[in-house]
Design a protein around this nucleic acid. Structure first.
Lengths: 189, 189
DNA sequence: GTCTATAGGAAGATAGAC
DNA sequence: GTCTATCTTCCTATAGAC
């Protein structure tokens, strides 16, 4: 059990996520992680004996379950399809702060020792995201293959818009993506 | 003037580009850069007194002029539009090795001290790319705003497909992007 | 469970011989 | 223009007190 001024488990992972998301794996030094969590290096090692690699792994694990509970599952209600697509738009807007923040999946893919530790979780999350969108896309009678293709395209547009927004220093690409999302996913041109 | 066994200017920048593209800015240590170029640390500092930051800057500068000469300008011929779009597809396929390689713009955007040194060049290259595609898109009588939007979308899809291909460990997303590119850019649905 | 202190090594960068 | 050798700083990780 923690002492009085300890940081909570939730806030801890959240702070680590923020650092990995903003600086990437190699840029996330223990000094920064220590500063942002308010814990000393040694305290971080007590909580994560595996060091930085374990921290990133747990961040990814929490990200995965967070997305499942707060994005994928809420999209599975029996509310009208347009309502759920609007929910998707709002959630993505909040998740990436209107395009100001990068995606941790992209940032952790850039790890120099990428082969192995994160690849599996990242792949799983990408596929779960596509699957969730695919279910939305096919619920109005659209053929499965078509819905799947649209879902994959939306995921491409999402991450491409984030890359472009960061690269150009403008939130507009992400905003335009969000605006086009319903048409892209449901195929109403 | 160089000695006999020196690496050429072109190969030097090429080797540096490869490292930055594959490992990101923070992951590109001087040890790796030294190993991949065949030059010792001190030799690299003789050529780039500004250190790693100057190396990345020059890599971006060369990337920009390379793209201008080998991609943007060749698209400005008076050949049939479909022929030029096919050229674009081929060039992109080669540039990213069929989706196996990441984009250096995305990888250098992830630098921990991103503010400043690279932001400007990266932004310029993104805009030049969009502009080049926009010209292609509007040459068949399409409205300027529509062509611009399509060009931006193609750039999003390009980078999104690269992110997705790396994240899932499959070249298919990039391949599907290349296949859809002509329709996306010219709007023939 | 958190801390201070420190080990041990790799990072970026420089000096000076050739 | 390239090298070996070195400097300083920062890194990851551990030891041990509280």
């Amino acid at each position: 059990m923690g002492r009085r001024s300890s940081i909570g488990e939730g806030e801890l992972i959240e702070a680590l996520s923020r650092v990995f998301r903003d600086t990437g794996y190699d840029g996330a030094t223990l000094s920064i992680l220590s500063e942002e969590t308010g814990l000393q290096r040694a305290s971080l090692y007590h909580r994560f004996p595996g060091g930085k690699e374990q921290m990133a792994k747990e961040v990814l694990a929490v990200t995965e379950s967070w997305l499942t509970e707060n994005l994928f599952d809420p999209l599975k209600t029996d509310a009208p399809i347009d309502e759920r697509v609007q929910l998707l738009v709002q959630k993505l807007d909040a998740l990436y702060s209107g395009g100001k923040q990068a995606c941790i999946l992209n940032m952790l893919s850039s790890a120099s020792d990428y082969e192995g530790p994160f690849a599996c979780a990242i792949k799983r999350i990408f596929e779960a995201l596509i699957e969730a969108l695919s279910q939305l896309a096919t619920e109005q009678g659209t053929a499965k293959a078509v819905g799947q293709a649209r879902a994959e395209r939306v995921v491409m547009l999402l991450h491409g818009s984030l890359v472009l927004s960061r690269g150009t220093g403008s939130q507009k690409p992400f905003e335009r993506f969000l605006e086009a999302l319903p048409e892209e996913l449901l195929g109403r041109h």
